[in-house]
Amino acid sequence: MNAPLLSAAGISKTYSGASRRVAALDNASIAVMRGETLGLVGPSGSGKSTLARVLLRLIEPDAGTIDFDGADLLAQRGERLRRTRRRIQMVFQDPLAAFNPRATVASALDDPLRIHGMGGREGRQAIAAGLLERVGLDPALASRTIHEISGGQRQRVAIARAIATGPDLIVLDEAVSALDVSVRAKILELLVDLQREREIAYVFVSHDLAVVRAIAHRVAVMDAGRVVEQGSASDVVANPSSPTARALVDAVPRLAARPGNS
């Protein structure tokens, strides 16, 4: 078996409030293979979003190590870290909040390309147009502001921004939770297509086990800052061994009937 693309081991993070200390992450360990989707599920407050942000170096953990493609991610600083950033990207839950309120579609896509020196001004415009087309948007949208396009379109722009620098890993933090079901289905399809085409690994954070099961190869179940169960998505759903996983399975609403099999 190959070495994982990213492996995080023994990650801990404690927030000290005025009166008490809260362990957001308690010795959590996960690993993601190249081209694989790891689902990160858990109830709210389980630490899944904190862990996702630790992987992106948005939050510095108190303890633990992260190995990304053979290099120590937590030791990287300055220019070295910036070069790695091009390979680890993120898509947020609320696409409106994830863009500068003044941004246009064009400027949002130009930023990562410019920062990483990918092409001159015109070359970047062509790359951005190609990205928009790849995520199923009309390149003519480039001149619009982020405010002027729909929620589903915004999330597509966010995905285009995330794939702009050719990343190996994208962390998706509840990236489809705020979308309407019809939009959600199409975004999930797009993510799966992009993964096949570019061998991108995903860390897919969600509180919805059904969506995670649909898109993830493997699942890590979190509760109270710990990873309480890991396994293939179908195994965890079929035979949950932890009470947390059991509760997540039971909580998924089921359709009372379906057309055709009534």
């Binding site: 989707t37 061998e199 649909a214 898109i215 998505a233 089921r254 359709l255």
Partner: peptide, 22 residues
Amino acid sequence: TASLIANHIDLDTPPLVSAGPA
């Protein structure tokens, strides 16, 4: 209504990815 039902994802929905990574 049919499209709402078809787009719903629950534990009976066939997974979008096969068991192992691509």
